[in-house]
Every structure is written in C-alpha cells, then in structure tokens.
C-alpha cells in the first residue's frame, strides 16, 4: 500500500471546455460533494499533483499548455478526461480549431462522459484513477529494482 489511494491531489485545466465541466469539478470540492473526504485536494500546482483533470478538447494554442502541465507533474501520474468534449471533441468536434480530445497530446487513463459531467461521475473517475496510480507506482518500483539488479551485475 503506497497511500496513493488515500491522498490523490488533483490539478485541473480547462482546455476548451464550455465551463460546464469546470464548474462541476469545482462543485465537487464544495460542501455537498466534499471530495476532501477522500483526501482529494485541488492543488493548482502541477508539481504537487498526482491526477490531471482535463476538461474540453485541445486546440492549436493550448496543446502545448496541456503537454507542459503533464510534463511538470512528477511520476506516478494519471490523466482524466472530463466531459464528452475531452473524450472525443463532443459537439465541437467539427470546429476548425479543435484537434480532438486531450488524448491526441498526452496519454489519458480515464474517460468521464457527460455534458456536463456530473460531480458524481467526476468523483467516480478520480476513484478509478487511484487504482491506476497504484499500479503505475508498483511498475515504477519494479523497474527501479530491475535497473538496480542490472547495475549490480
């Protein structure tokens, strides 16, 4: 048990979403849903975060921003695409400036559907991401062990 399950810190970035999902992400922090019960904190700082919530599709200007935030996050990390726009582009898929979901720029682990995604769905997405974090952590540990073994020989 590495306690990733107990303390997932999130960072949220609004790619090109219509605010609907963003507001729901924020609503999940507030008294009715109160995700801090599960130790979830919205850090706002990529270097502190474990889980990256992207809402909305990616466009020409923000694809670098999304990638930068992802790169700044320390391992292990997970990405959740929140809302239908972040899954596939949604209603804006045909717009000239929409490149598609964030998975066209960074690897996405969990897709949360909905327009707008309900806070319950977002919380569920985060909870599912926890398992992935734990797995990634173990894989990292294993890789390091193997690396050490090779180095020792």
């Amino acid at each position: 048990m590495a306690y990733f399950k107990k303390s997932p810190w999130i960072i949220h970035y609004d790619a090109t979403s219509c605010n609907g999902c963003d507001i729901e992400v924020l609503a999940a922090l507030t008294p009715l849903y109160d995700v801090e019960r599960f130790g979830i904190i919205n850090t706002g700082n990529p270097k502190h975060a474990d889980i990256f919530l992207v809402t909305g599709a990616v466009n020409e200007q923000n694809k670098m921003v999304v990638k930068n935030i992802y790169d700044q996050m320390p391992e292990p990390k997970a990405v959740i695409a929140v809302g239908i726009c972040a899954c596939s582009g949604g209603i804006f898929r045909e717009c000239y400036n929409v490149l598609g979901g964030p998975d066209s720029v960074i690897p996405v682990d969990i897709y949360v559907p909905g327009c707008a995604a309900r806070p319950e769905a977002i919380i569920d997405g985060v909870v599912q991401a926890l398992g992935i974090l734990e797995k990634k952590h173990l894989a990292r540990k294993e890789a390091r062990k193997q690396h050490d073994r090779i180095a020792a020989n």
Partner: peptide, 18 residues
Amino acid sequence: RFGPPVLQPFYDVYKLLQ
C-alpha cells in the same frame, strides 16, 4: 463540509515521499 480523515496529513506525506 465533512472533512478528511484525521490521519490524512500522514497519508499525504507518505505519498509524497513515494
């Protein structure tokens, strides 16, 4: 709000160490 478990800071620090 309800708030996190009382031991939450320990979970946080332990996670950060990893």
